[in-house]
Design a protein around this nucleic acid. Structure first.
Lengths: 363, 363
DNA sequence: CTGAAAGCGCTTACAG
DNA sequence: CTGAAAGCGCTTACAG
């Protein structure tokens, strides 16, 4: 693979920008050691006590409008910004949530994070993020211990995989916690609230759809999971059994198109394979390529269905029939649930029929 | 588009998990109002002053090993976790960085975030994230004002777009700031350090590559940008001019495959179009589909080159020739730069030649 | 409507 | 090697 190199650069200044210049005309040039403008500086300038300033910045009632305006004015002029650490300490908590996840680039994870952030922002919460780079229980536990502070904020874990589930297990007691998980995890006994998408039912529906197209059976390329079978695999298997149809071995895949491609090559070599359900769209993309290379046309020779409905899947060749999961909504609900807000709307899954699956060939 | 609905659920318990049970055998059942174990609780249990506990948790030298062990032991038994807010307040700063970005799901952004998080974690920094949902200067400014606290932490802005650049412009003085930007932004005068990838050179190289394949000229589908031309567009145009070749109008696209598809339809209708460079891989994916639908084969009828090298692009049909940008490395460098760490390695861009571009037809 | 006091849980000099 | 004091910048009752 030929390549040309084009290097990028790093530019910058050696020094920090100067601190905010003191307001002109003010007699209150005194600054605390940190160099930042404090509530007392504002109070002095406005000629009130610092408690009044506190009331103003917290939008509390009971401040004479004229006083409030004057304080606000001085806040702007001095460039005052409340110190969040001091607030958190005095209040006993922060409006903050930290999300633990093993990944930030895979579509499902990124979209869930987006939903969490959206909801958190709407509620005035700040959001922290920490990735679990190793799925080893000891590593996950160490990260959790280091990162989670029950006294300071709440936590959400995106537990679509082993690392996430371990994080849930090693969470110290007393932390405000919510999780986004697979259905089977949600139904199990646990001391935290969680949101989930019913992968199992969705996978069963997709399988039935394929069977309804006349395929003798449906093959499955699995995403990794901690237990032998994930919910998606379970839904697929159940649908096959209920239809009284042969249940093939699931092919184990990873999270990437590459692993889908490898799985697809095996499947393509088997003449009997006419329909394959994939654990996610990336896997499906790899399978699509494997089929193409093997000269097996999709959908006339083999039907392929994905999972997730990533934004790109509609443009694959052919357009991918897939199960749409509302990850953004899931993340949003997860945050709302954590903070006991009402109307936690449903996370929904539905099959989006496009061009990658079609009727089985007549034999 | 037919669909079947499969609803998901929310499960959970009404109450929080109980707080950590008090250690057995300890005579120090007294807890502060917050209910959390404090440094004083540990000190009392271990029979030392709380300053000593502070030394232990900060790994400071000058504590007798036996004392240290005893304190550590009590920390574990009582489940003590230092309150980060109190630490931040006492220290005058936090080991925290908050990243401002307009998006968390697009590949380039997500990968940059990943790099930042990696580097931050390695340095013991926590990372916060805030998305700039509106590109309006006033909205961006409001978010910055609300979110950024010079006294508490540093900030990184991912400024690949208008929103990010506005965030940079409205940053209050005195904050420790670094940015990931386009080259033209980096070379301009600014009071903060930044990392950048040389998009301009990379785009020029890609254009020359296409010209070298014998194409009369190269068309360009642009990603959005604040100014008339982005660096990528500028590099493309310059290469064309230097080759003394006709410079077509750039087609304005968005960030999505859909917008690439729309741009692609226009291009496909023009017989003279035989080579198109796209501002990102998603755009290229849309162009690929438009060409296919128009019956124009890629690469024999028209060559298509992308930008970014998202993990999926290798599996597109045909495999996409594209410019690989090391976003993860860029994010990592950005964090290191912010904290003045040495060896800020280069972010590199290089053309990855695959199957979507080929020789021009002989006329 | 506004102010004086106490305290949130740590760290940072300063003593000993 | 260890302890007593002061203080980080706020908020939260409590007075007036």
């Amino acid at each position: 693979m030929p390549s040309m190199d084009v290097t990028g650069h790093i530019s910058g200044l050696g020094e920090d920008a100067p601190h905010h210049a003191a307001a002109s005309g003010a007699s209150s040039e005194r600054r605390s050691k940190t160099g930042a403008v404090s509530i007392r500086d504002v109070a002095r300038a406005a000629g009130v006590s610092y408690q009044t300033v506190s009331r103003v910045i917290n939008d509390q009632a009971g401040v004479k409008p004229a006083t409030r305006d004057s304080v606000r004015d001085w806040i702007d002029r001095l460039g005052f910004r409340p110190n969040q650490a001091a607030r958190a300490l005095a209040r006993g908590h922060t409006r903050a949530v930290t999300v633990l996840t093993s990944n930030t680039t895979l579509y499902g994870y990124a979209a869930t994070l987006q939903g969490i952030e959206e909801a958190a922002r709407a509620s005035g919460f700040s959001v922290g993020i920490r990735v679990l780079d190793s799925p080893e229980p000891a590593d996950v536990k160490a990260t959790v211990e280091r990162e989670v502070d029950p006294a300071v904020g709440s936590v959400i874990v995106i537990a679509f995989d082993v690392a996430g589930v371990h994080a849930l297990r090693s969470m110290p007691p007393g932390v405000a916690l919510a999780a986004a998980v697979e259905a089977s995890e949600a139904t199990r006994r646990h001391p935290y609230p969680c949101v989930w998408v019913d992968d199992r039912t969705a996978a069963a529906e997709a399988t039935k759809y394929l069977l309804g197209l006349g395929h003798q059976t449906v093959h499955y390329v699995a995403i990794p999971y901690l237990t032998q079978v994930s919910d998606r695999a379970a839904g697929w298997r159940t649908a096959l059994r209920e239809a009284g149809v042969r249940v093939p071995r699931a092919v184990r895949g990873g999270w990437t198109p590459q692993s889908g491609y490898e799985a697809g090559r095996k499947l393509a070599a088997d003449e009997r394979v006419t329909a394959v359900l994939c654990g996610n769209d990336d896997l499906a993309l790899g399978v699509l390529r494997a089929m193409r290379e093997a000269g097996r046309d999709v959908p006339s020779d083999v039907s392929v269905v994905g999972f997730d409905d990533a934004p790109q899947s509609e443009f694959y060749a052919p357009a991918l029939t897939t199960v749409r999961l509302d990850f953004v909504g899931l993340g949003r609900d997860c945050f709302r649930l954590l903070h006991a807000q009402e109307e936690p709307s449903h996370a929904t899954a539905r099959l989006i029929v496009r061009a990658s699956a079609g009727p089985a060939r007549r034999r």
